[in-house]
Amino acid sequence: MTLPEQMIRAELLNSRITRTNAIYARFYGPLCLLVISLTFFPYYESEPGSSIIYGNLWQEVVRLGPGYDLMALLVLLLTALLLAFAAMGKLSTSGLIAILVGSTVIGSTLLQSPGYIDPPAYTDFGVFDIVLSFLTAGLVLGHAVHLFVLELAFQRGGV
């Protein structure tokens, strides 16, 4: 294969990757806003008549200090930051994998309710956040696989 053919194929691959990133980026902006906005609602329901009142993630971090909530907040903020970069189409496959890990950790942490012997019931926002975390992980995994397939096709000479 001559050098001009390789350059044309590389340019075609680059344009396909840019177009693919632009398609997925349409979803990442709203997801970023949803992820951030859900931190302002409580994930757990307070028992009627109980002295324990569960707040949103920010309130729980302030109330309880360092612990699971602080770790969850840091992972969530990092994931939201990466989603913002993905919304601009400025993220590579390794960044997508970081979002995948972050969103899976967020959803798994909420499902496991660490720190509770008998976890309280979830609010609608808590359930929505769990579902959103795993949907985000699925979308990002699909995007990463899509980019991987494009690269593989390029390496095999198909692009």
Rank of each mutant, 00 (worst) to 15 (best):
D118E: 12
S51I: 06
L110Q: 11
E11P: 00
M71S: 11
G67H: 05
Q59G: 03
M71D: 07
R63V: 02
G67R: 04
T93C: 01
I52N: 06
Y28D: 07
G138E: 01
E5F: 05
V75H: 03
N56F: 03
S103C: 03
A144L: 00
A22T: 12
L96A: 06
R156N: 05
F154K: 02
F85A: 11
L147W: 06
I8D: 15
C32V: 08
Q6Y: 07
G29M: 12
E45G: 01
D124K: 10
T109H: 07
S94V: 10
W58C: 06
L141V: 04
L12D: 14
F41K: 12
T109M: 07
I36L: 15
P66H: 08
R16N: 07
M7V: 06
A25H: 09
L31F: 14
T2A: 08
N56A: 01
P66R: 11
Y43A: 10
L111T: 06
R26Y: 13
G138L: 03
L100V: 02
G49L: 02
V101M: 08
R26L: 14
T2M: 06
A121H: 08
H146S: 09
T39V: 02
L91C: 04
F40Q: 13
A87D: 09
V127F: 09
I17P: 05
A87L: 08
G142H: 02
I130Q: 09
L70P: 00
N14R: 15
A80I: 00
L141E: 01
G126C: 11
L141P: 00
I17W: 07
G142A: 00
Q6L: 14
A72P: 00
V75F: 12
T2Q: 05
L34P: 05
A86T: 08
L91I: 15
I52T: 14
R26C: 05
I36N: 11
E5K: 15
E11G: 13
P114L: 07
S103W: 08
